[in-house]
């Protein structure tokens, strides 16, 4: 039997954080029926905890995919520790547990970001002139890679040449998002949070700091389009599956490297 475990952060206060994990799990059960016998959610701050999720899973082949954007504190310390993982592949109690990388660094991520943009702009009027895509990251001291993953995705999208400009801005590090949005030289600014879930920032602090009035904000010199976080997009379910499949290849690669 095979199981897929999707790990989310979770929250003690509301369902914002766990909801996308449940939704992606439901989509995986639906779209990839038969690939996994069990698709189970678990969390850092909700139940089932990472600590106990393996107790309730029946399968002997388990794949763990973190629903996190960047490599860092959670994916490198907390998740392996709580799940008792030794690395990309763990053999324990007759079980094989494969641990996938985070979603944000995956090569499929730019596609999800662009789908998010398409959804946002559908049926909306753009100004004549240039269009800039601005990716918004959290950026913290605890997780040095959280900025890197936003730059990585910006670069990958830039290479495709679909926007006149692709910029990045952050909440907790430079460049501050408000400055980027104000300063960017484009008539249309498409702002997409590279976050895994909705929350206090996406709903309150960001709209407040940037004086946004909703999905579309008209300014004298530009129109700002504000999208939902990438992590809640239904295509993330496909990203999770790709990540899960990739762990097998990674294992084969590791085996080759050893021999």
């Amino acid at each position: 039997m095979k199981a897929l475990i999707i790990v989310g952060h979770g929250s003690h206060l509301n369902e914002d954080s766990s909801l996308p994990v449940y939704e992606h799990a439901a989509l995986v059960r639906d779209r990839y029926a038969g690939e996994f016998d069990e698709v189970v959610e678990c969390f850092w701050k909700e139940e089932p905890s990472m600590r106990h999720v393996l107790d309730m899973v029946e399968a002997e082949e388990v794949c763990v995919v973190p629903a996190f954007i960047s490599e860092g504190y959670f994916t490198q310390q907390v998740i392996p520790r709580e799940l008792g993982l030794d690395g990309p592949v763990t053999h324990r109690d007759g079980r094989t547990i494969r641990y996938a990388g985070p979603l944000g660094t995956f090569e499929g991520m730019p596609d999800v970001i662009l789908e998010r943009v398409d959804d946002l702009l559908k049926g909306k009027e753009m100004r004549p002139g240039r269009t800039a895509l601005v990716l918004l990251g959290h950026g913290t001291d605890l997780n040095k890679n959280s900025g890197g993953v936003v730059y990585l995705n910006a670069e990958r999208i830039r290479e495709r040449g679909v926007y006149d400009l692709v910029e990045v801005g952050f909440l907790d590090q430079d460049p501050p998002i408000a400055e980027v949005v104000e300063g960017v030289e484009a008539e249309n600014v498409v702002l997409i949070p590279v976050f895994i879930a909705e929350g206090w920032h996406t709903r309150e602090t960001i709209p407040e700091d940037l004086r946004l009035t909703g999905e579309v904000t008209e300014r004298a010199d530009k129109t700002i389009f504000y999208g939902a976080p990438v992590g809640t997009h239904p295509s993330v379910a496909d990203l999770i599956i790709s990540r899960a499949r990739e762990t097998k290849e990674r294992e084969a690669q590791l085996a080759r490297d050893v021999s």
Partner: peptide, 18 residues
């Protein structure tokens, strides 16, 4: 976690406590 006894050779099926 509950552990199942080590099985050398691994021929017998794994015990799933779940």
């Amino acid at each position: 976690r509950a552990t199942s006894p080590e099985r050398p050779g691994g021929e017998s099926p794994r015990r799933s406590t779940a």
